[in-house]
């Protein structure tokens, strides 16, 4: 199967001499839910900008469903839907007009454009707001409007640049569900986000970019398996003694009922439970101290610094 996106040795040097991309290469399979992560200024948005023609590349090759953008960019663009980081619509236009106009730019006749716009505005819960100027919508609604707009020509590859930034938790969850649904229907999705739990929950494959280079490109499972340690917080029923020690584990008493335990690769949390059980301390609940992907991300980015 041809890849949805192929990037080979992509380079970008801005006019001021800043080298934003230093020859990155990656491939995104059809149907994938792919995370492109990196700290601010790493080169994520530049990469996305080049894919959708808002940024001119300095070198390298990009193909979308095997269509080289240097040979037939308009054909490649037909397959791409983009949800940018910043709001980039006319705030004075009505939501429906924004989506219908976008369909028109892709050559969809007015009747079909109206039908598609209605479908996606309904799916994203914006149909009731269709006649409201975009500036009157809430931040979350504006983000959903950009998603509806990006889907109106039914692209096979959807690129979302921090789509849930500034969106409340409930709205974020509903957007996750929607994205998972369209991914299950066959749309390939590339996601950049600063919420690493979002990437961990949604994405199957991941690339981490830092200082314009890919520092990791693998499956989410493989990446998380590389974690050498995990830190758990245990909520204890009984009051903890002032000094707690478990052989082989780094343990820290946080308060009367909370214990922090570091579990190294190869160790088992059961050993901790057994040791506490001997002390007649029972665990009511347990959680990760930090998101696992976040730890991995920090390790990779700091290691590359």
């Amino acid at each position: 199967m041809i890849p949805a996106l192929t990037i080979e040795n992509l380079r970008k040097v801005y006019d001021n001499g800043f080298e934003a991309l230093k020859g990155i290469s990656l491939e995104v399979e059809q149907g994938d839910f792919f995370a492109l992560l990196g700290p601010n200024g790493a080169g994520k948005s530049t990469t996305i900008g080049i894919i959708c023609s808002l940024v001119a590349k300095s070198g390298g090759r990009i193909a979308v469903f095997d269509i080289d953008i240097d040979e037939d960019f308009p054909a490649a663009k037909r397959h791409i839907g983009i949800v940018p980081q910043e709001f980039n619509f006319n705030q004075f236009e009505k939501s429906l007009d924004i989506v219908v106009n976008q369909a028109g730019y892709y050559g969809l006749k007015p009747a079909l454009a109206q039908k598609r716009a209605e479908t996606y505005l309904r799916e994203l819960g914006l149909w009731e707001q269709r006649d409201i100027p975009a500036r009157m919508l809430s931040g979350g609604m504006k983000r959903r409007l950009m998603i509806a707009r990006s889907l109106v020509h039914e692209p096979r590859l959807l690129i979302l640049d921090e789509p849930t930034a500034g969106v409340d938790i409930e709205m974020r969850r509903s957007m996750w569900e929607f994205l998972q649904k369209i991914n299950a229907q066959g749309t390939t999705i590339i996601l950049t986000t600063h919420y690493l739990e979002e990437a961990e929950a949604l994405c199957r494959n991941i690339a981490i970019i830092n200082h314009g280079k890919i520092v990791e490109n693998t499956s989410m499972k493989t990446l998380l398996r590389q974690l050498h340690k995990e830190i758990f917080l245990l909520d204890c029923v009984e009051e903890l003694p002032q000094s707690v020690a478990i052989t082989g584990f780094a343990v820290r008493r946080l308060d009367d009922h909370t214990l922090e335990v570091e579990v190294q690769k190869g160790q088992h949390i059961n050993q901790v439970f057994a040791a506490l059980d001997l002390e007649s301390i029972h665990i009511s609940s347990m959680r990760n101290r930090a998101n696992r992907l976040e730890e991995m991300f920090v390790n990779l980015v700091e290691g590359d610094a």
Binding site: C52, S53, L54, F73, P74, A75, K77, R78, I80, I82, P84, E86, F87, N88, F89, N90, Q91, I98, N101, Q102, Y105, Y106, G107, R149
Partner: peptide
Amino acid sequence: FGSKFSHSVEELLVSPVS
């Protein structure tokens, strides 16, 4: 200029319109 200022010109630039 308004579409440049609001970045809504990007709607056109990312589309296949010539």
